[in-house]
Design a protein around this nucleic acid. Sequence first.
DNA 1: GAGCACTGC
Length: 694
Amino acid sequence: MSQFWKPGAEKPRILDDEEGGVLFLASSLSSSSSGYGYGSIEKQRLRLPVYKYRTAILYLVETHATTIIVGETGSGKTTQIPQYLKEAGWADGGRVIACTQPRRLAVQAVASRVAEEMGVKLGEEVGYTIRFEDLTNSGVTMIKFLTDGVLLREMMDDPLLTKYSVIMVDEAHERSISTDILLGLLKKIQRRRPELRLIISSATIEAKSMSAFFQTSKRHQGLEADDGPRKDPAILSVEGRGFNVQIHYVEEPVADYVRAAVSTVLSIHDQEPPGDILVFLTGQDDIDATVQLLTEEAQANGKNKGLIVLPLYSGLSRAEQDLVFSPTPRGKRKIVISTNIAETSLTLEGIVYVVDCGFSKQRFYNPISDVENLVVAPISKASARQRAGRAGRIRPGKCYRLYTEEYFVNEMPAQGIPEMQRSNLVSCVTQLKALGIDNILGFDWPASPAPEAMIRALEVLYSLGVLDDDAKLTSPVGFQVAEIPLDPMIAKMILSSSQLGCSEEIITIAAVLSIQSIWVSTKLQKELDEAKLRFAAVEGDHVTFLNVYQGFLRSGKSSQWCHRNFVNYHAMKKVIEIREQLRRIALRIGIVLKSCERDMLVVRKAVTAGFFANACNLEAYSHNGMYKTVRGSQEVYIHPSSVLFRVNPKWVIYHSLVSTDRQYIRNVMTMDPSWLTEAAPHFFQYQRPDPIGH
DNA sequence: GAGCACTGC
């Protein structure tokens, strides 16, 4: 491979664009150098679109502190660029090349692919780290894949990330909270470590704003010192290798996208050649309705024989999700009706047609009421393109958009709102504080969150005793909370359990609260309710979780036991895993591991210490179970899934709140109001001088 | 008596 550009060699031809970024125009190499006697993996590597840009990428990374690579799916950037860097010597001298991904599955898949291409054992030269799993060998691993959340955690031990020579942040266009925090911090690190190189890889042409973010102040421009890289980011664009997808729009806006989706699917089935169909809708309700309607109409038309209609959303059991991946039998057409999960998280093979309703459920946070809501909202153009691209993976496809072209062009937003601007920031602020970022309001974010959200987060953390009057982390509580990889309210609950002597129980509760649900998703609602009753505790859902966990342990962690009791076996295994991680961290930060045996009073006090802000009082004379929150006097109701539903104790504390027609509180526990002033005297003095006196 | 887009540490 001597023909490739290496650091120090004569530079390839480049052209500066008017913004000071560097745009690579032509490579002197073409991909025609493939074909002599390489193994098939090697041949495949040479055929990837990114291969043509190998020299350019290495040159830009050598000469620029930050390189932004815009690459469509199938360009090969994720698997190839780390290898190019290694071949060019960026992993010499014990240094490591890092590549981050937003999702665990992607980390594992990419790492094993790269290990295979390099002919090495996974966990040696090529490794990966995700929560609960570290497959790296320190001193040996040269290329390391990891989730961006794990890299953020690594910064708590090594703030300058000194072992890495190059950090590639992949899928940056998704703008998850951890990607955004990471980008902000990496920009800071760059100032302290000029030898560090960043590669920001993104699927959309948002590169300009990303470039502006990494652009350092004007006076540095043009000062190209011989001993350092250029400070202005380079931008390089790599084409993808997807097939052409023809876009169809509706001529008039549709009133009901469920009906529109059904009729679109039926006409594709009627008129188009074989190929599976993927339909994007917003949620479980829409999807179940569509599956039913489609099955009925197909039956009525006598077309049901050729159709396999399958729902897809994260709430389905593993077995139900796996159905979607089974190959379509000859002569049949598979129709997958899915949430956003199929946009990025899962990739289906064999899709030729996509139907896109133009909406998805998105989280929005209201810092004034401190409530996170799930709202059906229009998707962005970037999402619409991503959805359409799902039709072009195996051959040219078609995408049917259930909105007008006029709407797409003129009204659909180009990019979605970054998650940072739609979320509660309590965890995010704690993490930054732990990394020594004192001036949170002045932090240089890729997208600044609302000041109200920031102030609300500071208030909550102050009331938890995580921050002091100067908004600095308290010692030891604040630092301990930051070490625990969970929501600060949960972390505070764990810390309090140490003093109350019930940490074993509270850690179990923390683990259960941090997974989706320990119950199986089933249509047998009555049976599920009956199963729940077998574990129900008068103290509420938290203690009920302890009963389930005890039962699971006594059964010898049996999957049959889970099945009999409508408990989700995979969820329980995850609970065990999270418990183990939390116990390790607890020992490290000096929490006393102790069981309170059957004393649920201390367990409830520990929960209150974290969740006092979620205290509610049953309205006197309320016959319909209406509660008011102590903090904001909001009307709330106990969710029917709670064991305290219809029990309606006078005082409760909840873990989370969901808004639909009503505000429902989920995971609810009974408590005594005198604990509130005990847990957070300042908070309740400030909010309401005497919460107990009525 | 009713509802949970999707990730991640």
